[in-house]
Every structure is written in structure tokens, then in C-alpha cells.
Amino acid sequence: MRLYAQRPDLRLRQALGDAGVVTWIVLWVLVARAVHRAVLVLAEPGQAVEDLGSSVARNMASAAETADRVPVAGDALARPFQALGDAGSSVSGAGQNAQDAVGTLALLLAVVLVLLPVGWLLLRWLPGRWRYAREAGAAARLLRGTPDLELLAVRALATAPLPRLAALPAGTGAAWRDGDPAAVRALAALELGRLGLRLPDRAPVPAE
């Protein structure tokens, strides 16, 4: 495969396009990170609730343990503190659940903010770049060693826009049919020009 053209203007456009895609991806990753951090701020009340519940649970557990040491009535005195401690644990769990929900929401928003715009752009950009890389790579292989300009000429005749074919010298088609090297080179140059590739300096010499 060949990623970039040899023709300077097309190569510059391709490089700018690739740089634009990378910039777009980095931009949305930064936006997603900022949103993720902003949403995580909403978890601070949940953290406060969890800390408060944990503190109440610890204090009530300590109080229940102390009350339980009272002779005869210790068990009865400890029960209210144990109940308050259980309530504190429940509050702490609710605070933790709130934090987990906010964390999940922050992560989902960050992922969506990256996947949607980046995926949309990649779906529009990747097929064209992949198609160019395959076609330019195949054309480059035809030019290795002894260039097979005949195949490129046939491709130009089959796919080149009519205005570009009409701009060739009169009689190019007939000359190509007769095996004229100049006509073959002209048609091959048309196809290579579409890909931004250069025609080799020397054409193969046909066998007599």
C-alpha cells in the first residue's frame, strides 16, 4: 500500500487531511476528559453522605460496645445504638451507590463523546484513504521493474472522465490500439495523475 501521493499538491492535501483527523480525535478526547471530570464533581455529595454514615456507624458501634458492658441492662441499652449503627451503615451504602452511579454516568458520557464524533469522521475518512492506499499501491507495483504501462492505459480508457480523455491529443485511442508507445504513455499518465503518481522517465521498449 502507498499512503501518500508523489504530486506535491495532492500529498499536501492528504497530509493536512490526516492531521485534521488526528486533531479532531485529540480534541474530542480532551472534551470527553473535561466532561468526565465535571460530572465526577456530582459525586462529592455522595462521598460526604458515605463519610457521615461511616462515622455514625463507627460511633454507634463504639457506644453499643460500651453500653453492652453495663451489668444486667447492657444488652437492652446496646440495642438502640446498634440500630443507629445499622442505619449509619445503610446511609454509607447509599452514599457509595450514589458515587458509583455518578462514576458510571461520567464514563458513559465520556465514551459517547468520543465514539460518536470520532466514529462519524472515521466512517467518512477511512474508506477513501483505504481505497487510495490500495489503488496507489497497486499502481506502484505495476511501475516496478519494467513498468506495465499498458494496464494503466487500459484502466484510464475504462474509468477516466470523458473530459480528461477528450483533452488528450486527437487519435490517442486509435494510436493506443495500434500499440503506439506515446499513446500508451499518455493514457498511463492520465491514470497515474489521478493517483498523484509520476510516470516513469522511460517507457518499456516493445519487442519487435
Rank of each mutant, 00 (worst) to 15 (best):
V29M: 07
Q82I: 11
P80R: 03
G46R: 00
A98T: 02
A76W: 13
L113M: 11
R131Q: 10
A73D: 09
L143W: 09
Q99P: 02
V72E: 05
P127D: 00
A38G: 10
L122N: 05
D68Q: 13
E50R: 01
A57T: 06
L149G: 02
V114G: 08
W24K: 03
V29A: 08
L113G: 09
M60P: 13
A78F: 07
D75G: 15
G17N: 04
V22A: 14
D100L: 11
V49S: 03
V31P: 03
F81G: 07
V29Q: 09
G17S: 08
P71V: 10
L27Q: 13
P147D: 09
A83N: 11
A67P: 11
A87I: 10
L123N: 09
L40I: 00
L122S: 06
R124S: 14
L40Q: 01
P80I: 07
L115W: 10
A15N: 11
G119H: 08
A139R: 00
A140R: 02
A64H: 06
G137S: 02
S55R: 05
Q99M: 04
R129K: 09
G20C: 06
D18N: 08
R131M: 07
G88T: 09
R134Q: 01
L52S: 07
G88W: 07
L52E: 10
P45T: 00
W24S: 05
Q96A: 08
V72P: 08
L108C: 13
A140W: 03
L113Y: 05
R33T: 15
P45K: 00
G145Y: 05
P71F: 11
D68E: 13
L152A: 06
Q99N: 03
L115A: 14
S55A: 15
V21Y: 06
L121P: 07
V70Q: 08
N97H: 14
A57H: 08
A98C: 09
L121C: 09
R141T: 01
R129L: 03
A43M: 00
G145H: 05
G103N: 04
R129C: 01
G137Y: 00
W125C: 02
L27K: 13
R37M: 11
V72D: 07
R33P: 12
R37D: 05
L16Q: 10
S92A: 14
P147L: 10
W125E: 13
F81M: 15
Q99E: 02
W125V: 03
R69G: 08
A78H: 04
A98Y: 07
L107M: 13
V56W: 04
M60D: 15
R58L: 14
L107F: 15
W130H: 03
V39C: 02
P127F: 02
G119Q: 04
L105Q: 05
R79F: 12
G74P: 03
E50S: 01
M60I: 07
A57F: 07
D68R: 15
A48V: 00
L84T: 12
L105S: 03
V72G: 05
S55K: 06
R134D: 00
A67Y: 08
A138D: 01
